[in-house]
Design a protein around this nucleic acid. Structure first.
Lengths: 206, 206
DNA sequence: CCCTTAATCCCCTGAAAAGGTGATTTTAAG
DNA sequence: CTTAAAATCACCTTTTCAGGGGATTAAGGG
């Protein structure tokens, strides 16, 4: 028997999921909360196996709540619940210890599969959520093309080499390295090394 | 019927998984390869639904192969296969489009669950693989404690502000900012801004 | 109370990066 | 063949950073 708790500020969603699962033999409805505080209150005297958690809620959001819950009750698995196009939040939920992610328009089958997978300590990700995540990453990866040489030099900068060192390493004039470096700054529209490296790492150019 | 193909340079693993699954009614053994080239060769004239792929192989490694396969055959789902303690590779596989990850010492049940989950376009992650990934992230997050002030300044550096700008922004002497900056370099054991920011981003200090 | 740490401030030097303004050569694409 | 982009090299100025040396104050733990 899997005890299920749901946190969502939309009554429709709570009702909908309740309806979907009320006749499932292996699933017990532990209760629901419509905000973070109320959820935390519930877990003081009660528990559940899995928490279905909306990410966007008034007050403390799901991401923060997820982190707190995982800290206080490591045995409770959290399954993120989202509508579409919220890639950033999906990513953040996973970083905060969620065991999976499904979209609110999932089918009953998908929902069940997610619940069972998460319940055994594994991680589930709806394909659609995966898509959203990828789309998010694509959109934030929309940066100008860098030439192979520029990428190479970018990599060396990130490893802490200075222009003269890079020049020596790849047999170039340090003037040339400097030129490439300036081109990198211009292409990525940043003004110094710190921003350059941050951009590069965030956009997985390294 | 799910057509399964496996790529692994260890005959034992191929044989083992074959043995585990040979009597499964829904699973068809499409074939196996012991290196990347042979796998690519197979897919020229054949196909499969899911590829079980080892990450560490001679020649082209699983990570690269995974990226290639996803590009050429987007309909084929890839399930990473690893022994323990290879967190870095698990991460890379996922970044290269794998649909999941399981450890080689998984039970038959887990393996089947993974296959069925991936086959429907969802993403599966064995709990153990999740652990490995977390452990990996923990170990790479083993960095000295930074004071709140240092974190604040680190953040501003990453946003591209120079020492005088930071000083003005948070009402400090630029000498002070410079001191903090030097302490950051010392604490994180790096020698310039580029390495500092790379460290910071990789260790999620920002 | 002492010790440590964080946080603040100061100075000097030399190296590196940023900003600007050029140029030539090779290579890939039209 | 022409053009555009990439890659190469050069010089000069100003700003910023890195490395070295210090110092004082405030707060917290042992």
């Amino acid at each position: 028997m899997i005890r299920l708790f749901i946190v969502d500020d939309h009554p429709v969603v709570i009702e909908g999921i309740h309806g979907l699962l009320q006749h499932e033999p292996d699933i017990e409805w532990a209760g629901h909360a419509m905000n973070a505080a109320s959820c935390l209150g519930f877990f003081v005297n009660n528990t559940a196996d899995i928490v279905l958690m909306d990410i966007s809620m008034p007050g403390m959001d799901g991401v923060e709540l997820c982190g707190l819950m995982r800290e206080k009750y490591p045995g409770v698995f959290i399954l993120g619940l989202s509508t579409f196009n919220q890639g950033l939040y999906i990513k953040k939920m996973m970083e905060n210890g969620a065991s999976g992610y499904i979209l609110k328009n999932s089918t009953k089958e998908e929902l069940l599969k997610a619940i069972y997978t998460v319940n055994t300590g594994n991680i589930f990700f709806s394909g659609e959520a995966g898509e959203v995540l990828k789309e998010y990453q694509r959109s934030s990866t929309r940066i100008p093309e860098l030439s192979p040489r520029e990428k190479e030099i970018l990599g060396l900068i990130a490893e802490g080499y200075t222009n003269p060192q890079i020049a020596e390493k790849i047999f170039l004039s340090s003037f040339t390295v400097d030129s490439h470096r300036k081109n990198l700054l211009a292409k990525l529209n940043v003004k110094n090394t710190a921003m350059l490296i941050r951009m590069a790492v965030e956009n997985k150019l390294l």
